[in-house]
């Protein structure tokens, strides 16, 4: 397991190394190319800034007003009725809207039950296979002025739903209850 953590420290430097060496071999003007890309990268950040601000304001108001808690408390009985652990229900909803809030819930679960408990493991795997759907979708679609995501939302939510249940089932199989 230590090995995996060490390996994960290698991913970024090795990716950069491979690309730069490859570029050098192909006689790319490395620094020039880098600056060219970095400039477009910065431009990209500036371009998405208004979307980001809009997203943050909306999501933080949603949380601060207490609506997210209400929605969660409405969803929890439904999920427990389906056989889902009540302690994990808030995470399923919050994860869709805010990454930082989801991490907050995750660490709370870790503190309460321990990361190696059934709930801790399930929550960890849930975080791996789900995504802040609303955030990502807004960022990408709004960047090209697409406001009608069509089936994208449904497909993403369905995939998320499957992921949440898969996390629960897989944890049970692999680690036991």
């Amino acid at each position: 397991m230590k090995l995996l953590l060490v390996l994960s420290n290698f991913i970024i430097p090795v990716t950069v190394l491979v690309i730069v060496v490859f570029g050098a071999l192909r006689r790319v003007n490395l620094y020039e190319a880098f600056l060219e890309g970095a400039k477009t990268g910065l431009q990209t950040v500036v371009d998405i800034l208004p979307t980001l601000i809009g997203l943050f304001v909306a999501v933080e108001v949603l949380r601060a007003g207490g609506l997210l808690e209400i929605l969660t408390s409405l969803l929890t009985p439904l999920e427990t009725w389906l056989g889902f652990p009540a302690a994990l229900a808030p995470l399923t909803l919050v994860r869709l809207v805010s990454s930082s809030a989801a991490v907050g819930l995750l660490t709370e679960l870790f503190a309460d039950y321990g990361p190696d408990s059934f709930l801790g493991r399930t929550a960890s795997i849930m975080m791996c296979c789900t995504e802040t759907v609303f955030y990502t979708m807004s960022l990408y679609f709004m960047s090209v002025k697409v406001t009608k995501p069509g089936r994208t939302l449904f497909c993403a939510l369905a995939a998320n739903f499957v992921g949440v249940w898969a996390a629960l089932a897989i944890t049970g199989w692999v680690f036991g209850k």
Binding site: M1, L106, F110, P115, G120, S124, C128, C129, A159, I170
Partner: peptide
């Protein structure tokens, strides 16, 4: 995060995580 909260094997979720993600 798992390591921070004292997990005995923080990376044990990688394999199951990949399986769940593949499915989604």
């Amino acid at each position: 995060y798992r390591a921070e909260y004292g997990s005995a094997a923080p990376a044990e979720i990688v394999g199951p995580g990949i399986a769940a993600t593949l499915l989604t």
